[in-house]
Amino acid sequence: MLETNTPSPVAAQSYPFEFRGNGKEYFKIWIVNVGLTILTLGIYSAWAKVRTRRYFYNHMFVNGQSFDYHADPIKILKGRIMLFLIGLSVALVNLSPIFLIIPVLFFLAGPYLIVRGAIFNFTNTSFRGVRFGFQRAYQESYITWLKAIAVTIFTLGIGALTSQFYWRKFIFDHMALGKARFKLGGTGFEFWAYMMKVFFLYGLGFLAIYLGVTFGLFFSGLISKEDAGLVPFLLVAMIYVFYGFLFVVYQVRTAHFYSKHTSGDGGLGFQTRLTLWDSFLMYAEQLFLLIITLGFAWPWVTVAIAKYKAEHTDAMATPEFFNSLEQAQLESVSAFGEEVASFWDFDIGF
């Protein structure tokens, strides 16, 4: 463990993240991945996954050095096959109710699998030759799981957002870079209030605009006309744009909250310069690109978003932080947990 108690003589400086990949390069990697995956009936997808991650980690720089990803594709393939077999076994439920135990076991194993997935992911990620790590915090994982369920049920769903914070806190508090530990401060309620405040305000604002437009159209007589076919389209489009807006609000606000409350050994911290309006324009632009290219701009869009997020994030650390990380004991686990988590869209990582 690094010395956290003695104040460092040199103040923390900000080191911007920088993504040096580009769309054309990633396009070639992606298309070869996809081509080989199709030709090998999905088997290559494990290698493709590793290569894609490596591309993004290798090109993500902070203070002159980039990250790396070391997962063994064979392990990922085994994880995928197992997940596939379990998926098939769900069909057995119809043969006899005894097989109902499979989905039930799977559900109960959720928190265990999340820990396994986190260990797999973090121990296979490195920075400056030092591996990240994750503790075998099975008990805390189940506690987090119960808290997340309880906060959703007892608030009748209103507090569901808080569970997102609990999981993020669980991940941050149990991960490490070498021997350096991280910590996510703040409370679930703070997070909830921070998010709900803007959701509520923007929700009210949107409602006012929506009602204004509807009544405006109504009084101008447009809505009752038979030929006003575009009016319902306009109203539905407004709702879609608002959903998109809330998505961006969510991204930006969580980035601000988490970076403000994340700290680590050696004076580590994070800073985000994401702003709402600018981010909204960026996402709108990328979505537009995807639509007019029927989705084929995918690699360019993915790179542009990674670049944008990196450019607006700084790591705060003392200069010696980068040279003083120490390697910790490595653990080796199967990739099954990681595969389950990524199929559930559970985000283990930064």
Binding site: R20, Y26, I29, R54, Y55, N58, H59, Q65, G129, R131
Partner: peptide, 18 residues
Amino acid sequence: RLGSAPRAIEFPGMMRFE
């Protein structure tokens, strides 16, 4: 080789040459 990123050569004992 992967894009334009620095290339790693791994040695026993987790030594890494970039």
